[in-house]
Simulated scan of single mutants.
Amino acid sequence: MTVVASNAVPLPSLVHHGRRHVPALNAIPRNEDPASHVAYVWDEVLGALAAPGAAVSVVAVGGSCELVTAFLDDAANWAVWGARLSSILLLGHVYPDDGLTNPAFKDFFAKRARAYLVSDQPLDTPLAPPTGNDYEGIPSLGCPCYSSSEPHHIELIPVRALAPAMAYVEAAATTPGFENPPIVVAERRRPDQVPEHEVAWDDVPEHEKPSVSLAPRLSMWEQDEQGETTGEVPSDW
Rank of each mutant, 00 (worst) to 15 (best):
D236W: 10
A60Q: 06
A39I: 07
I28S: 10
I88E: 02
R217W: 03
G99D: 13
H207E: 10
V185C: 02
H21Y: 14
D236F: 01
E136V: 10
G99V: 09
S147N: 05
S140L: 00
E170S: 14
A76H: 12
F105I: 02
T131W: 11
E222H: 01
E170D: 14
T2I: 01
V199C: 11
Y168H: 05
R84W: 08
G92V: 01
E198I: 01
G82C: 00
V118E: 00
Y40W: 15
L49S: 14
N102D: 00
L90F: 10
A113H: 10
T101S: 05
E196S: 04
A167H: 15
Q223V: 07
Y95E: 07
K209C: 03
E228F: 13
S87V: 04
G142E: 02
K209V: 11
Y168D: 04
S36C: 09
V9E: 12
A39S: 15
I88Y: 06
D236S: 13
E196H: 03
P234C: 04
A51Y: 14
P139W: 08
A75H: 06
W221M: 14
P158L: 10
P205S: 07
S219N: 08
S6I: 09
L100G: 04
V118N: 04
V15N: 14
N77D: 09
P139R: 08
R112L: 04
L49Q: 15
C145Q: 02
A70T: 01
A83P: 06
D224F: 15
H17R: 15
